[in-house]
Design a protein around this nucleic acid. Structure first.
Length: 694
DNA sequence: AAGATGTTCTA
DNA sequence: AGAACATCT
């Protein structure tokens, strides 16, 4: 295995030196070549947003300097294709093995599988590890060996597993560098000049990099954690952990977080500090949600673009780009929502509670397609994370068995008084309402004219009237829901009559395209299980891989393929965090971040590689099975290993396919299939076919 | 003591 | 919105 050659450690979203199993393995094996490959085209629609790239840039610089102090450096490569870059690095360094840590988003599952196939074929030893989760998704199953479908059950199981999560590894003391003299780094460009200006303020609030992540963790554990249960639902309290971006980029390991929190919990439990103990439970639960997001993504890889509950695909979403824009700009007329949206745009950050408020408003009041909202979060959040965001939006949209009720509308006015009782949060982000008394701050439309006047507010002029009334929204939601159920019943009837072919397809398999608007803005706006049989010994061989197989024609994804690159810009948002602002004037002042309105963000929709619809007759799917690989038992990744579930209202087809696939899976060359799929965005759709059971 | 009213929670 | 729980009278 080790031979004479050195090892490549392929960094991805594990930008840390401590508790990094891939790095540790590389160091153990001898000389190391640390590599990071920037290949955003592989991400398709999920090209990272501006602030996310800012973070990445700094995190990589931080990692590089740490590696240098340990004796090596980070080789960076700019590439349209990670796997070919790896091959290049192998060629120029004579590396004979490669180590990396697992990722669980659908794009990575495909890419990593392919990497493994290709590299192995080249005689390279490939080993991968769990560095991102307490337990691998395939380790956590119910009494029947099936994956859980609700969070509570999942998390309960995680907390009562027969073995503990791995203990965090110490960072290496020294790294012997492989010979990189013939392997120059590419300079990676993560932001253009305009973006640089827009990002200028971020460094005041955030410090990317693993050692800063460690500091943030320690600060939180020793500080706000104990009060977490009390404080966690105030919109602007600085009592959250602020770990999410660090966790997203793997700057701190979740095991370490878990470890430290558990130690505190034991301590507080011994002291009889009930509140402290409960705080840890709540904090760990949010870590659990992150775990669950990976779990869901692994088990249902199309969960970032399809509702997990089948009937939701019949929901008549309101396709109204004007609404969408109004929401993004924070001009809905609901102060709590607007404050949140403006904070998001200005800072790339939102308190968890406010994320729920704005997304719930988006889905239930505006009834816009949730994927639009999710995409906007992706573009703007500093901690944008595909798996977490997909879980969040699905939860909000009522598309999970344990999500919020579909027909429940959260009223931002009432939420305002619970999350922001004194209106401070609203006043900070909506300067035009800064003089409005608390009594009216969350429902200015009810305020007496005299009060509004005194506050310098003219509704409909310098602050909008509610874009949609809550009552109207409720009525419209009821209609939409009954329409949805009708459609669903009709579709089911059609299936029973055997006339289903094609009928349901248009509605169910063609996700609503993103609006042009999110990419392009008009110009007048300033733009801008039972225990696993062999629990431990194969830990570092658990390579999630994907097997695809022939299924049937089910997908015709036309609309999604043709996406133009375009300019992404935002509605104007006040970014002047300092409160005082002229109350007059709809024109919001231009704060620092706003000096740049328009960030051009290319969309790499590699429409090349999309197959014709004839070829589309092969829709990927895969199955769960265990098979030998590299001497280790490897679960083969499966999207629909779900025999549970009346909850995931399935059509029987979905379930049947599952078993058919199990039989058929090995007959098709995964790579051939996968290559056509790599342009990602369509991946999930293809994998799932039109099964409802997702 | 039982009923009304209020509070908190929901992945 | 509605259940579960807590507090008041």
């Amino acid at each position: 295995m080790s031979g004479g050659g050195c090892s490549i450690v392929w960094f991805r979203r594990d930008l840390r030196v401590g508790d990094n199993p891939a790095l540790a393995a590389g160091v153990r094996a001898g000389a190391v070549i640390a590599v990071y490959i920037w290949a955003p085209e592989e991400e398709g629609h999920y090209y990272p947003g501006r602030v996310s790239r800012w973070w990445l840039k700094h995190s990589l610089a931080h990692l590089d300097s740490s590696l240098r102090s340990l004796g090596t450096s980070l080789i960076t490569k700019r590439s349209p294709d990670s796997v070919s870059s790896l091959l290049e690095v192998i060629k120029s360094t004579g590396a004979t093995q490669i180590f990396f840590n697992h990722l669980y988003d659908p794009l990575s599952l495909v890419r990593d599988h392919r990497a493994k196939e290709v590299l192995t074929a080249q005689g390279i030893a490939v080993r991968s590890f769990n560095a991102d989760l307490l337990y691998e998704p395939w380790e956590v199953n119910d009494a029947h060996g099936h994956p859980f479908t609700t969070f509570a059950a999942f998390w309960e199981r995680c907390l009562s597993m027969p073995y503990d999560p791995e203990s965090p590894l110490l960072p290496p003391k020294r790294i012997i560098s492989g010979d990189v003299s013939r392997c120059p780094s590419d300079t990676l460009v993560f932001e253009d000049e305009l973006e640089k200006a827009s990002n200028a303020l971020l460094a005041r609030a955030w410090s990317p990099g693993w050692s800063n992540a460690d500091k943030a963790l320690t600060t939180f554990i020793n500080g706000p954690l104990i009060e977490y249960s009390k404080n966690r639902r105030k919109a602007d309290s600085a009592t959250t952990s602020f770990l999410s971006p660090h966790l997203h980029f793997g700057e701190v390991s979740v095991r370490k977080v878990f470890h430290l929190a558990c130690i505190k919990q034991v301590l507080w439990a011994n002291e009889g500090n009930k509140a402290g103990e409960e705080s840890v439970n709540l904090f760990l639960k949010s870590i659990g949600l992150r775990e669950y997001s990976r779990y869901m993504s692994f088990n249902h890889p199309h969960s970032h673009e399809r509702p997990l509950l089948g009937h939701l695909k019949f929901f008549p979403w309101v396709i109204n780009e004007g609404y969408f824009k109004t929401w993004r700009q924070g001009r809905t007329g609901y102060p709590l929502v607007d404050a949140g949206m403006r904070e998001l745009w200005a800072t790339g950050w939102l308190h968890d509670r406010i994320r729920v408020v704005v997304s719930s408003f988006f889905v239930k009041v505006l009834q816009l397609p949730w994927r639009w909202g999710m995409k906007y979060f992706w573009d703007t959040l500093l901690d944008a994370d595909l798996e977490s965001d997909a879980l969040g939006w699905q939860y909000i949209s009522g598309t999970l068995p344990d999500g919020r009720e579909l027909d429940r509308i959260d009223n931002p006015q009432f939420e305002g008084y619970t999350f922001d009782p004194n209106g401070e949060y609203v006043r900070r982000w909506l300067p035009e309402l800064s003089r409005l008394p608390t009594e009216w701050i969350h429902h200015p439309w009810n305020a007496p004219e005299s009060v509004l006047q005194a506050a310098g507010i003219e509704l409909g002029s310098n602050y909008p009237l509610p874009i949609v009334g809550i009552d109207a929204a409720k009525a419209r939601l009821q209609e939409a829901l009954s329409e949805m159920w009708q459609q669903e019943a009709a579709s089911r009837a059609a299936v029973e009559n055997g006339t289903d072919e094609g009928l349901g397809d248009s509605s169910e398999s063609t996700p609503i395209a993103f609006p042009q608007d999110i990419q392009m803005e008009e110009s007048h706006e300033p733009t801008r299980n039972n225990p696993p049989p062999v629990p431990r010994q194969y830990e570092d061989q658990m390579v999630p891989s994907m097997t695809s197989s022939l299924l049937r024609v089910e997908e015709e994804e036309t609309s999604l393929h043709l996406r133009n690159s375009a300019e992404d810009s935002r509605g104007e948002v006040p970014t002047n965090v300092n409160v005082n602002q002229q109350a007059g004037g709809d024109t919001l002042n231009h704060g620092v971040l706003q000096t740049v309105h328009s960030n051009t963000r290319p969309y790499y929709d590699t429409a090349i590689g999309i197959r014709s619809s004839a070829e589309d007759s092969t829709a990927e799917s895969s199955s769960v099975s265990r098979r030998e690989r590299d001497g280790g038992v490897v679960p083969v990744w499966s999207p629909s290993s779900t025999s549970f579930s009346e909850q995931f209202v399935g059509d029987e087809n979905g379930i049947c396919n599952q078993f058919i696939l199990l039989a058929e899976a090995p007959s098709v060359s995964p790579i051939d299939e996968l290559e056509a799929v790599i342009p990602n965005w369509t991946l999930a759709a293809r994998i799932g076919g039109s099964q409802k059971l997702q």
